[in-house]
Design a protein around this nucleic acid. Structure first.
Lengths: 144, 144
DNA sequence: TTGACATCGTTCATGGCCTGAATGATACAG
DNA sequence: CTGTATCATTCAGGCCATGAACGATGTCAA
């Protein structure tokens, strides 16, 4: 035996891909992709106003990608770009009210997804999974 | 709150991406990508000889991608293509000894990864995670 | 002040991965 | 034998993400 498919890493990888896919189709109606949601979520939890470079580092993507994501979100009216008066090179991204509303709907979509996939799990099991995943995410340096 | 990032779906998605990435860098030395390993694993667990169409369906990818993956694995000597004598349209893929050896090394790499990310988890917690992920994978129709 | 150098956001060309349509070979039903 | 379906393969194209430029701005030292 000693099967790759019996591995936590492999299962996380494949399950993660499926989740991304399903989540993407759920938020498609809002003209959003998972990365857009990730960016908005980072903006919401950010206490200080975030520069695009900061966000790129937090999300683990290239700065040029943040530009594209922000462009799209700005076009949707979900995000505003403001020049930092203290350092005029920086663009400060902030979530608009509409952006916050969108984010709420995405959270609801993710919640539905949770319910769907954990339907066959006991409540305690689901809670344990939630907790463990949070610890793992923190362990690999993902923003919580 | 009601944060997207607190969601099981979102955490699975991001963690899965990280895992894929890390696994990819671990097997890079063997000139393999995660999808190659997925294909080999499907071959190993397949009881009956698998046609490429079957494999495409099992992996959830387009048949044309299986062609590319099989091409690469064949070049590495990990896989053999044999015409099905019963239906000469079909190519039957089988894992060679070298392929099996490669797969074992990939399983070892995934095992290391498991140890790394679950280092801060109790043994019981890790076992529970492994079990729950298995159930989830089965729930979304992933081959186990 | 001025000049050298770093940093930010942006654009652009490029590469990788995957798909869907077209093709040729083979199977099979009538 | 003929028409249709199924298989593997090829190929062109799309999408996503990156890295290398570039212009604008900031910083620091002389």
């Amino acid at each position: 035996m000693n099967d790759v498919k019996q591995t936590i890493a492999f299962r996380l990888g494949t399950l993660g891909a499926v989740m991304q896919e399903r989540f993407a189709s759920k938020i498609e109606a809002y003209d959003l992709k998972p990365k857009h949601v990730g960016l908005m979520a980072a903006l919401k939890s950010g206490t200080v106003a975030a520069s695009q470079q900061d966000l790129a580092a937090r999300l683990g993507v290239a700065p040029s990608l943040v530009v594209a994501l922000a462009d799209h979100l700005e076009r949707l009216g979900a995000v505003e770009r403001v020049r930092d008066p203290g350092d005029r090179r920086r663009q400060t991204l902030t979530l608009t009210e509409h952006g916050a509303a969108l984010l709420t709907r995405c959270a609801a979509a993710a919640g539905e997804l949770d319910d769907e996939i954990t339907a066959s799990l006991a409540a305690s099991e689901r809670a344990a999974l939630h907790d463990t995943l949070g610890r793992l995410a923190a362990g690999v340096g993902l923003p919580s």
